[in-house]
Amino acid sequence: MALQLDEGEAELSEINVTPFIDVILVLLIVFMVAAPLSTVDVPVNLPGSTAPAGDRPEEPLWLTVTADRRLVLDDAPVPADRLSAILDERSNGQRETPVFLRADRSVDYGALMQVLDQLRAAGYLKVALVGLEAAP
């Protein structure tokens, strides 16, 4: 027994978008869960500051001095003797690139000055010290 269609009836051919919407919603949930996990940061106990925050450059270099006086550039550990070469590599030799320097609260002033001296000797003079915003 065969099904016969009348001449007036035509087959409906539409795209079913329900599976597409389901996939998009699942991807949205995956990205919403994964986005906060992708911002891995170096654990450092920053001191507070009551100064107003300045304008932030587009792509600064983040140099961190940890509590045990290790240097970390962005998220990668850096040997102190190779700091200049690695900074040049990351900034493509552009020494006008701003360097945001953050140090743990327990790092003494002398150790911080040594890092600043290394940055100055390497030619990086645009250095900003980073701290937490504290209540006035």
Rank of each mutant, 00 (worst) to 15 (best):
N92Y: 07
E133M: 06
S13Y: 03
V72K: 11
L132R: 15
T66K: 14
A122K: 03
Q114G: 04
A51D: 12
A51K: 12
G54T: 05
T39R: 15
P47D: 04
R70H: 08
Q114T: 07
A85N: 02
L73A: 04
A134W: 01
V130M: 05
L125C: 00
P79C: 03
V115K: 05
P77N: 09
D88R: 11
D41M: 13
F100Q: 06
I29W: 05
L101A: 10
D55P: 09
R95N: 02
P136W: 01
P19T: 03
V17L: 13
G110F: 04
Q4S: 12
R70L: 01
R102D: 04
G54L: 06
V33W: 07
M1H: 11
P136Q: 07
R82A: 08
Q4R: 14
A103V: 02
K126L: 04
A121M: 09
V65H: 05
A128Q: 12
L37Q: 12
A103Q: 11
P60K: 07
A51P: 00
V33T: 07
N92A: 15
L61T: 05
G48L: 05
V99T: 05
Q114E: 08
F20E: 01
L12R: 13
V40F: 14
D22P: 00
I29V: 14
T97I: 08
R70N: 07
T97D: 05
G123M: 03
